[in-house]
Amino acid sequence: MNLRAVWAIYRVEMARAFRTVLQSIISPVISTSLYFVVFGSAIGSRITEIDGISYGAFIVPGLIMLSLLTQSIANASFAIYFPKFVGSIYELLSAPISYLEIVIAYVGGAATKSIMLGLIILATAALFVPLRIEHPFWMVAFLVLTAVTFSLFGFIIGIWAKSFEQLQLVPLLIVTPLTFLGGSFYSIHMLPGIWRTITLFNPVVYLISGFRWSFYGKADVSVGVSLGMTLVFLAICIAIVAWIFRTGYRLRN
């Protein structure tokens, strides 16, 4: 195991986050605060509570997931797309480093950043609403699992993308809509019958539901199913990454 290489990549990725601290950390904090002001007070004045939880507190897990998903994808896809774009990827490909090590370093870096971000949002939220976390272990588990899974997903997008447009296509056209429709701001029980069924095909619903359960002990779908779905998505991403590296897809051709 070339741990020095993993560490070298990881450090550069973290350094990038601190260099672009405004973009990486402050802007999500501001946008989260805005969500609170807009959704929390505008809608919160009409819906006072869901499942016995105040509306402001109810949306916190969803908001964290929202940022966690988009930032994991953005961080990881950019981290691998950028060297491809400027050509400096040659060095990575010529280094005595295994595929597994490359993935650990890049995905680890991206996931670390988005986990830190999730925690910052959590701290920001605590300033607005009273929070409680009933299952801290599972809270952290969902946080880490989601960050890793979607960083892997971002990594795949970064390797697949041939242009900046493509890089933003998947997050914009698929991930963001799925996240907004994933029950961040409402309980899916509030939807009329047919929509509730359709929503169950949205994988983000399971992530948010499971994550919210770890806070308040209340879930839209059972927590076992949430965990299972997350692991399935993780397995799919790992399989795709393994295939990419076995074939050299868009890397060594």
């Binding site: 070339n2 020095r4 290489a5 560490w7 070298a8 990549i9 450090r11 550069v12 350094a15 990038r16 260099r19 060095e91 990575l92 280094a95 005595p96 480093i97």
Partner: peptide, 16 residues
């Protein structure tokens, strides 16, 4: 966006 010093040390690390 990296400094010369970091860039070169990164390469060394990458090669283990």
């Amino acid at each position: 966006f990296e400094s010369v010093w970091r860039t070169v040390n990164y390469s060394r690390g990458l090669f283990g």
